[in-house]
């Protein structure tokens, strides 16, 4: 009535306005420096909420579902994948193609080729869950942008193993801890 509702609302926005400056005081000199941020601002904290992306990065949760990677068994030094092709058959978008190698390595069957097409993958995670060997994982890779779709987004066996060695040296997924922001 008589603009009191308006004034009430304006007090809320003013409070937020002041809060962002109060919140900034705490991190004043570092605010625009390049630094990793491990967690988003807490639920009850007040102040500016946005993350200044290229400088600040939030950690990825261990279960974050990014592009696939093939995990390597740290003891044997070869991939856990036995080329069974279950992942290929369970994928709803037909993004995976696996062939099995003729010879065994270390008494274990291995894939000969593995082709993973990130163009069509929808990161549903079925392939990872179905894998009998737990040989697949999701890498916490975030910046996957390319200038063209097509080949740049199709990963082969080596690239996937590389990703696996980089992000999951222990050879397990979900990762043990939150992925550090790079």
């Amino acid at each position: 009535m008589l603009g009191f509702g308006i004034l009430k609302g304006m007090s809320v926005t003013l409070r937020r306005f002041v809060d962002t400056y109060v919140g900034d005081l705490g991190k004043f000199p570092w605010r625009y420096r390049s630094r990793p941020v491990y967690k988003r601002m807490g639920i009850t904290e007040r102040g500016a909420f946005t993350i200044q992306y290229p400088e600040e990065r939030v950690a990825m949760f261990p279960r974050y579902r990014g592009p696939l990677m093939l995990l390597t068994d740290p003891e044997k030094g070869i991939t856990r994948c036995i080329g069974c092709g279950l992942c290929e058959r369970t994928c709803p978008t037909e993004s995976i193609k696996v062939t099995r190698a003729e010879e065994k390595v270390d008494d274990q069957r291995v894939p000969e080729t593995y082709e993973y097409d990130m163009n069509t993958c929808m990161f549903c995670g079925f392939c990872v869950q179905i894998c009998p060997q737990d040989a697949l994982g999701h890498s916490p890779e975030l910046e996957m942008g390319t200038y063209s779709k097509g080949d740049a987004l199709i990963l082969n066996l080596d690239q996937m193993l590389e990703l696996g060695r980089k992000h999951a040296p222990g050879g397990v997924w979900p990762l043990e801890k939150e992925a550090e922001p790079s």
Binding site: F61, R63, Y64, C124
Partner: peptide
């Protein structure tokens, strides 16, 4: 904040694919 809870549990913010036929895909972290 909610979407972060989803990501923590299911691994994806908007497309969680969390419910299975006969349960949920993973226990709560």
């Amino acid at each position: 904040l909610v979407v972060d809870l989803y990501e923590m549990t299911a691994g994806s913010r908007m497309m969680p694919n969390y419910f299975w036929i006969g349960g949920v895909s993973a226990d709560l972290p």
